[in-house]
């Protein structure tokens, strides 16, 4: 079964090649890999879809964590996360076929983003299942070109936020809040001392 890993890395040159190199060298599978800057521009979020048995997945996590540019690696389990992918499909359509493809796209809430005399370009966003289902339904038509981005993913809710502190430390949300509180207490203590003085 496919598993999704979220990796937060320093935005250094060669970091993507270090990660993908590690996967290919150790024979781990990559179904898809996406990378993009996080809310903090110093860091990049890499989302890798991979597969393997428990032992391999454990090794993937450990070996990735060992890379020096990696700040955080964790699995985004399906029940606790949202996955999204974008696909662009170019379908060959005659004037007669056009209506059918458009209405199919509407059902899937896909957008027509380019219309040409002999083709339509459709943009669809969703989980992989939805995109697969849409592509299945397009089987009656000739798909000229297909571009899929691979999965981007986030954990659900505030509890699963992976927070990057100003100093670059990566913490889970509860740890982040705890750290904030401790800092506040420390500040209060300091202020108290000052007041006494």
């Amino acid at each position: 079964m496919d598993r999704v890993f979220q990796i937060i890395v320093d935005n250094t040159s060669g970091v993507l090649s270090r990660i993908s190199g590690l996967f290919s060298r150790r024979g781990y599978n990559i179904e898809s890999i996406t990378a993009g800057v996080t809310a903090d521009p110093r860091f990049t979020r890499i989302t890798i879809v991979t597969s393997g048995d428990e032992a391999i997945l454990e090794q993937i996590e450990k070996q990735v964590a060992k890379l020096i540019d990696v700040r955080d690696v964790r699995e985004l389990k399906p029940e606790e996360s949202v996955y999204r992918e974008l696909a662009m499909v170019k379908v060959k359509v005659s004037a007669k076929e056009r209506e059918g493809v458009i209405s199919l796209s509407n059902i899937f809430r896909a957008n027509i983003i380019d219309v040409a005399p002999q083709s339509l370009m459709i943009e669809i966003v969703g989980g992989q299942d939805k995109i697969d289902a849409f592509l299945d339904l397009l089987e009656g038509y000739e798909i000229l070109e297909l571009a899929r981005t691979g999965i981007a993913a986030l954990g659900r809710g505030i509890d699963r936020v992976v927070h990057i502190e100003d100093d670059g430390t990566v913490r889970g949300w509860t740890d982040h809040m705890r750290a904030l509180e401790e800092e506040k207490k420390l500040q209060q203590k300091k202020n108290g001392k000052k007041a006494r003085k």
């Binding site: 032992a55 454990e58 090794q59 450990k62 060992k66």
Partner: peptide, 11 residues
Amino acid sequence: VDPAEIGKITG
């Protein structure tokens, strides 16, 4: 010292 070595070959 390397956590990745533990369990790499055998649990």
